[in-house]
Each structure stands twice: as structure tokens, then as C-alpha cells.
Design a protein around this nucleic acid. Structure first.
Lengths: 362, 362
DNA sequence: ATTTACTGGTGCATCGATGCATGAGACTAG
DNA sequence: CTAGTCTCATGCATCGATGCACCAGTAAAT
């Protein structure tokens, strides 16, 4: 809108528009240093900036990527969005943000719309097990990086998956609890429909088995039909889970929540039941959102290296967009990390020989 | 990228590209219903979608707006972004997201970049008192809606400001506390540099004055030099404030925090001091972020009608972008609302004649 | 029959950048 | 002095949609 065109620059520098274009696009091979300098000066003097619309129209490409997340109101996605934007911006790419609200049709619609508008690459954060709804677009040529998801049979070829090892992550916290002497753990989740929820659950089970404990040591509390897609609901879910679990006969000594929001709800529920988290009962979450460190007590959880993952996502996307050959898809698994805080402590059964408030490396 | 052009549609329908264009742009005045139907069928059959780059190049306009926030990692901005996107999308606008990290230069850079790329409207969420850094761009024609900010002398003419009445909001909570019998209140904030912080402070003072209390009834705790720009820091600030205030002789019976994050820190600090929020001392925040309702106890706070504000922001932006005349700027003040939860209760001085846990309409 | 009026639709230049094919000029070789 | 070789720069068609100015028809008026 500044309105300076390549023609004005050309005139100012006393050359043709082609020359300016050549310079702009790095075709400086055969160009007198003097000419080059003249053009560069003119560009600077006029404050010329190429018109992106014209560039895109001509080249078909555009320096922009799309990000589709369930909802940026959720701090986990907000954080991811921020890091992805930073990675993109460093290479001159803009980022279009889209909230899918976890709706399949909205995901599809966005993907098609973005593709139709000339955006060549999209990072899709979907919790859906299948990518069928976007398959046609991907097969038409869209570069798709799926985030927080593991490759599934039937996925379109070129899709790159980026995530953390959920099985491992959940094993880590579960083993942490087992190491503290807990022998009766509850796993709290909404429906285990999404891929990573299933993976997390599997990690939980594996840890219990590996410890040689009977299946019954792991109680599963699943709000089955609850539509726990909203964060507030997720937390609420944790709250009711805690209430129910603690009211039952032979309650667990530790509760494993499917994610941090859920864990925060659990903490609230435990407190309402008159117990103290980190003393009477241990609670762990997953994700390490900002609130996890600020909660009282600090929440033991599993951190996903979000920044690193964002950077990988952008790199992969870009690679895909540049090569014309249809690169084969694959998965990049980042390593999750156990973050121990004060919400976990030795099981009450051992509490006699261990100081009550121990357990946190803060 | 689908690649169907207006020419193909024209051929398919047996008309000229102009006719298709006319239909697409609503110039259907003089067009036989039959012709119209033929074209519409062709469009559907070919799955034609106008090429946005070409449209933009031709018309100069683009159906896209920019949103600049301090950081979407902060749930308050995340929520706002989500609502703004929804409002924009309903009218066929995309939203480009930019994180300024509260940096003046980044704000300027983004504004210039967006303008240079043909984006005609930007919603800027800046905490800076002055808009001088973006003034040139606004004067060049960019439509700017400033969010969470009140008009200041020296602002560019066309800027529309959207916010809530911070003075009123803070008066509301402060009066709520006074009504509960509190006579010694502390106001906790980092440096009161930004406009809305100053406004909030002013509301606090006004309420105290209006109640006929002496100036000294309002203690001001200001972390002066602290760089409390990160959320974590803000909470930390509240924590230290609480500790210091409670350790002093003649401590306050109620603490007013500059925002919810800060209030959550205060709550943590109070708890560490061995006191119970909502009984021994009352705490209030501002913003009503999601966590406010999930904290223990639920935080009494002031809610900004975010969704409504987002909708206003979009409407104003759009109006500005459509009219060529440079509409005059103005401010839209939304009404904040007091949300009473369990973190406030009657002052301890009255506690003898009032049940301890009362006070919350939940 | 010729002009006037009107209806319904089309031709074409245009937006700004791109990059291939081509050309002008300088210089050397024969 | 012409042909051949280089070097450096330029002409021009192109991407797809837009919308004004114009034009073929047909109907009504003179």
C-alpha cells in the first residue's frame, strides 16, 4: 500500500524493471557492481517493498503458513503458536492462525481454504485419529505437518508427524510414583479416543506391568461420555474424578491425570475432600503448562519441549514446500522430560519413615 | 492452487469472463436469470474459487486483518484471539497473528510489514502509553483499532480505542471490599506505567475517597523497578507483595491485585504466611481469566466482556476499512462486571458477628 | 424506414512482479 | 572489415480477476 512499484525504482535507478527484479531475486551473476549499487540505492531511497500479491500471482508461491489448533485459548496451544510464529518469522514467513474448536469439519474447511488461497504448508494440531478429511487436499499437493500425533496407517504419504513419545512420558511419571512407593494408582481421563490419550494410557499400563504389579493396581477413571473438550470441562472432570475416587472404598494414593488442566481439577477436588496434595495423596499431570509451576503445590508433570518441536515443525514444513518432489512422510518423536515438583511425595504407607513434605526438586 | 480460472468457468458456461466476474461481484442487475443459473452451475461443477492473489492485485484490498498481541501464550490474549478470529471468519476475513512480546520495535515492525503486504486493518493490543511508533503508518492509511487502551492526546486521528472502564472496574471491586467492612486495603502492582494500570489505580483511590476514608487506608505496594512483563513474574510479584505486606505492622485486611495472575501469586503468598484467603484476608484480582474460577478459593475479580469486545473490535475495523473517508477515531468503553467468588469475605474485624465462610455468590 | 431507447452481455486495459529469450554494445580473431 | 564471442541489460508475455466503456440486438417512437 506504500505504493512504490518496481517501475518507479527502475526509473529512479535508470535501469529497466527487469534489472531490478533480477537483483531482487538474486540473479546477480552478470551484473555490474556499479549497476547493482545504483539499484540498491534507489530501493532504499524510495523505501520500495515488493507487492506480495503480485509476487504470489506470478510465482504461485506465498511466504505464509497456516496453523490450525483446537483453541488458542488453551495456553498449551498459545505457547506453541508463539514459538511457531517466532520460527516462521525468522525466515520471513507469516502465520495464519485458525481455531478448529476440535471440529472435524472446521479442520477440513480451513485446510481447503488455506490451500485454495495459495498457502502451501499447514501445521495441523488435530486430536482426531484419522486424517481422512484432509487427505484429498494433501494429495493435491498441500504440505501438512501433523503435530502432537503419531503416524497412523492410512495417512497420506507426505505427512510429517511431530510429537513426543507419550508412552515414554507417561511411563516416566508413573514410574516416578511407583518409585515413591505408591501401589494403588488411578488414571483419570475423559474418553480415550484420541491417539495420544491412548498412548498415554498405554504408558501408564506398561509401567504398572513392568513393576510386576497386578492389573488392579491401576484404577481407570474415565468420564466416558463427557464432552471434555473445553479446558474448563477438563478441569471439572478432574474435580469430580477426585471426589469419586476418594469417596470409594480403598482409594488410590496417587492420581495420574491425562493432562495438566485435568490435574489442576484433581487438586481442587482433593482439597475439597479435605486432603492435602503432596502429603496425603500425590497427583501428576502432563504437558507442563505455565500454571503447573504456579499451582499450589507445584505440579509434578511431563514437559514436552514445545519450542524445539515448533522449530522442527517449521523446518519440516519448509523443506516440504521447497522441494517439488513429494518427499516421503515420517515421524519425529521428541523426548518428554519428567518435571518433579511438590505434588508428589512418598506414599502415605511409607510416610512414617520419610518426612512428609519431601519429594520435590523445585 | 486448485487452478480453475475464471476463463474456464466462462467457457464452461458459454459466456465471457466478464459475466462471471459480474456475477461474482454482485453486479447481477441486468442479467438474465437463465444466464445466471448457467454460470452458477459451471462454478459449482468446476469447483471454482477465485484466486485471492489476483483479486488483491487488482482491487488492492485483501480480506485479512492483523492481530498484534503481547503474547498468545497468555490465556487472556489467547481467548481474545480466538473470539476475534471467530468474528472475522464469520465475514470471510482471515486473521494473521503476531506476538509483539511487548516490544515497541516489534510492534512497529509488524504494523509496517502488515501494511506493506496490503493488510488494511490491524488490531493492536499494546501496553505502551504512546502510539507514536505506528503513527506514520496509520497516517498513511492503515486502520488501527487499539485494544485494552484508552485514547490519549497525541494519538493519530483515525484510531479507534476499545477497552473497558478500568476506573469503574477497580471501583467496583474496591467498593465491594469496603462494603464487606474492610478499612485497610493494599493495592499491589508492578510499575504503574501503562495506561490501564494508572486507570485501575485511580479507581482504587476514588473508591477510598468516596467512602470518606483517609488516604492512608490505601496502602500501595509497587514493585517499582521490577520488570514484571512476564506472567510468571507477575505472579511472583504478588507472592512477595503478600509476604511483605503481611509481615509488616498493622497489615491490610484486603489485597487488591492489578490483575488475576498477580492475585494468584498473592494467594500463594498468603497461604505461605499461614493465613487463609477468604477468611483471614480477602484478595481480589482483575480480568477473570479462566484460572480465576479454578483457583482455591475462587477468585473475586472483574470480568472484561472479551467476546463482545472482540466483536466490536472487528466491526470497527471493518467499518474503517470500507469507508474511504477517514472516519474520526473514538473510544468504545465496555462495562466491566464484578464477579464475586470465595476469596473475599467480611473483614476479620466483623468476623465475630458474621459466619466465617460467607461472602461468595458463586 | 430510420432514429431513439433500452436490455443484456462482452472487449480490453490494468494491477505489479517475474524471468525467458533476445538484443545492443564492446572486444577479439581471422 | 566481417564474423564470432562475451557481457550486461532489456522487451514482453504472463499470472487471474476486475469493471468501465462499449456494442450487438430488439423494441418502441417518430
Amino acid at each position: 500500500m506504500a505504493g512504490t512499484t518496481i517501475y518507479q525504482v527502475a526509473q529512479e535507478a535508470g535501469v529497466s524493471p527487469s534489472t531490478v527484479s533480477n537483483l531482487l531475486n538474486g540473479r546477480t551473476g552478470k551484473m555490474l557492481p556499479e549497476t547493482r549499487a545504483r539499484v540498491e540505492t534507489a530501493i532504499r531511497r524510495l523505501g520500495y517493498r515488493p507487492n506480495r500479491a503480485a509476487q504470489q500471482l506470478r510465482t504461485g508461491r506465498i511466504q505464509m503458513l497456516g496453523l490450525i489448533v483446537p483453541s488458542v485459548a488453551n495456553p498449551f496451544w498459545g505457547t506453541f503458536a508463539r514459538h511457531l510464529e517466532a520460527a516462521a518469522l525468522a525466515e520471513g514467513f507469516y502465520m495464519l492462525l485458525c481455531n478448529s474448536e476440535r471440529d472435524r469439519d472446521r479442520e477440513r474447511h480451513y485446510v481447503e481454504e488455506l490451500w485454495g488461497d495459495g498457502i502451501g504448508g499447514v501445521v495441523l494440531c488435530s486430536s482426531l485419529p484419522s486424517l481422512d478429511h484432509v487427505k484429498p487436499t494433501v494429495e493435491a499437493g498441500l504440505r501438512l505437518v501433523a503435530f502432537d500425533r503419531t503416524a497412523q496407517p492410512g495417512d497420506p504419504h507426505s505427512v510429517v508427524n511431530i510429537g513426543t513419545d507419550n508412552v515414554l512420558g507417561m511411563r516416566l511419571v508413573t514410574e516416578h510414583l511407583l518409585g515413591l512407593g505408591h501401589r494403588r494408582l488411578a488414571f483419570v481421563s475423559g474418553s480415550i479416543g484420541s491417539i495420544n490419550r491412548a498412548e498415554r494410557y498405554s504408558g501408564f499400563q506398561q509401567a504398572i506391568e513392568a513393576a510386576g504389579l497386578p492389573q488392579e493396581a491401576g484404577i481407570v477413571w474415565s468420564g466416558a461420555d463427557t464432552l471434555d473438550f473445553d479446558d474448563r470441562d477438563t478441569a471439572e472432570l478432574g474435580r469430580s474424578a477426585a471426589r469419586e475416587l476418594l469417596a470409594a472404598a480403598n482409594p488410590p494414593t496417587a492420581i495420574v491425570a491425562i493432562n495438566d488442566m485435568c490435574a489442576l481439577g484433581v487438586i481442587a477436588g482433593v482439597r475439597e475432600a479435605g486432603l492435602t496434595v503432596g502429603r496425603d495423596i500425590s497427583v501428576v499431570g502432563y504437558d507442563d503448562i505455565m500454571l503447573a509451576s504456579m499451582a499450589m503445590p507445584g505440579l509434578t508433570t511431563v514437559r514436552q519441549p514445545v519450542e524445539e518441536m515448533a522449530s522442527t515443525a517449521f523446518t519440516k514444513l519448509r523443506q516440504g514446500m521447497e522441494s517439488t518432489a513429494d518427499s516421503a512422510g515420517h515421524s519425529v518423536l521428541h523426548r518428554p522430560r519428567l518435571i518433579v515438583r511438590d505434588s508428589t511425595a512418598a506414599s502415605a504407607a511409607l510416610a512414617v519413615k520419610t518426612p512428609a513434605h519431601q519429594g520435590g526438586t523445585r
